[in-house]
Amino acid sequence: MPSAVSTIPNLGPASEAAFARAGIESAEEIREMGADAAYLRLLQAGTSPHFIGYYVLVMGLQGRPWTDCQGAEKAALRVRFDALKAQVKHKGRSEIEAALDALGVVERRR
């Protein structure tokens, strides 16, 4: 029987719902895909990009508390996060909306 997404450390019901909207129903699917592919699916499904959400997932898949993410490791994860965001098209948005979304200021239209 598949494990709930919320069995991954640091993830709860909100993450579980977001992954379900992206078509990912189990912790096993996320582990098999890896953090980057799973987070990209969230973005493609319309979830607004948030750096903390990304590194919480990365830390959880490693069995670590999200507060472990610091220093050079956090900086490297930020580079990966920015690369994932760049892969998602922002159709029908003005340049200023896309810039504000990139900063995490506005939510993506659905």
Rank of each mutant, 00 (worst) to 15 (best):
A18K: 09
A35P: 04
W66F: 15
C69Y: 00
L11T: 06
L77D: 01
G34I: 09
K85H: 02
G63Q: 13
Q87F: 04
I8N: 01
L11D: 03
P13F: 00
P65C: 12
L42P: 01
P49A: 15
G104S: 09
G71H: 12
A76C: 07
R108H: 09
G53A: 12
A37T: 09
R80N: 04
Y39I: 02
P13W: 00
G60E: 08
A75E: 15
D101M: 14
A14C: 04
I52F: 10
A98K: 13
G46M: 07
M1H: 10
E97Y: 07
G71E: 13
P65G: 10
A20F: 10
E95K: 12
P2K: 11
R110N: 10
S94P: 08
G92S: 10
E107R: 15
Q70W: 06
I96H: 08
G12M: 09
F19W: 09
Q44E: 15
L43V: 04
A72T: 12
D36H: 01
G60H: 07
R78V: 00
A37D: 15
T47N: 04
E95R: 11
A4C: 04
T7Y: 05
Q87T: 06
R109W: 01
R80L: 06
I24A: 05
R108L: 13
Q87D: 05
V79M: 04
E97D: 13
A102F: 03
R108K: 12
I96Y: 06
D68E: 15
R21N: 12
E107G: 14
M1P: 09
M59G: 07
V5S: 02
Q44H: 03
M33N: 00
S26K: 02
Y54W: 14
V58M: 05
R41C: 11
G92A: 09
S15R: 07
P49R: 08
P13H: 03
C69I: 11
A14R: 13
R78Q: 14
R41D: 02
K91Y: 09
A4T: 05
V56A: 14
D36L: 00
F81V: 03
I52S: 11
A98W: 02
S94L: 11
A17P: 01
P13L: 12
N10L: 05
I96D: 13
E25M: 10
V56F: 01
S3R: 14
T67P: 01
G60M: 11
F51Q: 12
L100C: 08
D36Q: 10
A4D: 13
H50T: 08
K89W: 04
V58Y: 01
A86W: 08
A4F: 04
Y39P: 01
G63R: 12
Q87W: 05
I52G: 05
I8C: 04
A20H: 14
Q70K: 15
